[in-house]
């Protein structure tokens, strides 16, 4: 026998997915072809076994814990974008502030170094507070209102410190761009609450 239906046609034949001439051709062939009959029989046996598999587990349900409010709150993509963006900005600002404290600044006035060190610490601290506020809310350890307030306060401090640091290093374009990013985050944050 020169022509055999493809594997795909045999599966479609079993699933009643063939019509018209194709159905007729496959049906006529299968009636006379022992090889295809064997193939179909093994697939039929497999389907029979699969259909008889239990569709329910026999184990008792684990106790249902009604979701607490934080799990029911829809976390909007915008909110996640804010969190992710803030984390990146904070990280970048922290790293950058750290880089700017390298020995090349030895020639600068001492007071500037201290100022930068303080601002760097403030950026890192408020950045951590910002991310912690989000994490605590997600874990249900704080209310949404509390988390919002914590996040707003941390973002305000973060912005202020980054802005001050930029004033100390006005020539620094990367820092300027980071400050702009934090400013944008504040805008998005305010927008998302409207």
């Amino acid at each position: 026998m020169s022509w055999h239906p493809s594997e795909s046609q045999l599966h479609n034949f079993l699933d009643d997915e063939l019509q018209g001439e194709e159905l007729h051709a496959v049906q006529s062939h299968v009636e006379d072809c022992a090889e295809c009959q064997t193939n179909l029989a093994s697939t039929r046996a497999l389907l029979h076994e699969l259909k008889s598999l239990p569709t329910e587990a026999q184990t008792a349900p684990t106790p249902w814990n009604p979701p607490v409010q934080h799990q029911l709150n829809t976390v909007s993509p915008r909110f996640l974008a804010i969190a992710a963006g803030a984390a990146i900005a904070i990280f970048a600002a922290g790293i950058f502030a750290g880089i700017s404290m390298r020995p090349f600044s030895v020639s600068r006035p001492r007071v500037g170094d201290q100022g930068r060190a303080q601002l760097t610490e403030e950026i890192q601290h408020s950045g951590t507070q910002y991310v912690t506020a989000i994490a605590r809310w997600r874990r249900g350890e704080s209310s949404k209102v509390g988390a919002d307030q914590g996040r707003e306060a941390a973002l305000a401090t973060l912005y202020g410190a980054a802005y001050e640091l930029q004033k100390l290093q006005p020539e620094d374009r990367r820092l300027k761009s980071i400050v702009r990013s934090i400013h944008d985050l504040r805008d998005i944050d305010l927008e998302s609450k409207r």
Partner: peptide
Amino acid sequence: YRSVYALAL
């Protein structure tokens, strides 16, 4: 529960 768990598993 049993049905959803079976599918997820």
